[in-house]
Amino acid sequence: MSEVAVLQLMGLCVVGTGILILLFLKAVFVRVLGFVIIMLGIFTLIALGVPQMASLPPAVETFDIASVKTPDDLASIGQKIFFSKGQCALCHSIGPSESARCPELAGIGAKLAPEFIYESLTQPQAYVYLDFRHDGLPEEYPARMPHINKNPIALSEQEIYSVIAFLQKMSGEPISIKVEDVLNIDVGEMKVASLVGHGGN
């Protein structure tokens, strides 16, 4: 029997029990209980009657550090970090957006040198961007840029370079981050392996 059929059977049994109680028992409290379980049973049966659909999580992509061969591999890891662990997309969008709280990043990899992006990520207050997209004086953006290499986001060096690689690729710029350099960064442990999909080890 399928899981739905089992649950339907249970629901029917519950409703049946409730009906039996209402038919044959006199004690008020028990009758009220019978009434309650009939309602709950019917609710469950109705919920079992609508289309059943579980929402499966997308596959966790594991990443083997040895598999990074090309800058594109690096950029695809960077893309994942951009939209998950790095939390960049909480504020930034790629392309103009109404809900973005901070500057949009379309073409940023072509506009800025990787060193400058690195500095913006690790020392965000070194150069503060203001919002000019309106009349009057420029304003600060509603959200302040956190230090990406510190808690709570705490991306490793390798992760930050992956993100920069992604930003460059997205802007149609040749990726200037070198794979060997990134792989040679001494992190003590294989942090990169655990970053994508959050510890899908």
């Binding site: 609508v50 289309p51 659909m53 893309q79 939209f83 997309a89 969008s93 790629i94 392309g95 103009p96 957006s97 109404e98 809900s99 973005a100 379309a106």
Partner: peptide
């Protein structure tokens, strides 16, 4: 019961027409 407009993946949320 096909969901006609399911939720888009995160990468596409918040983009605006340039």
């Amino acid at each position: 019961s096909r969901t006609i407009h399911p939720a888009p993946p995160g990468e596409f949320v918040g983009l605006a027409n340039p």
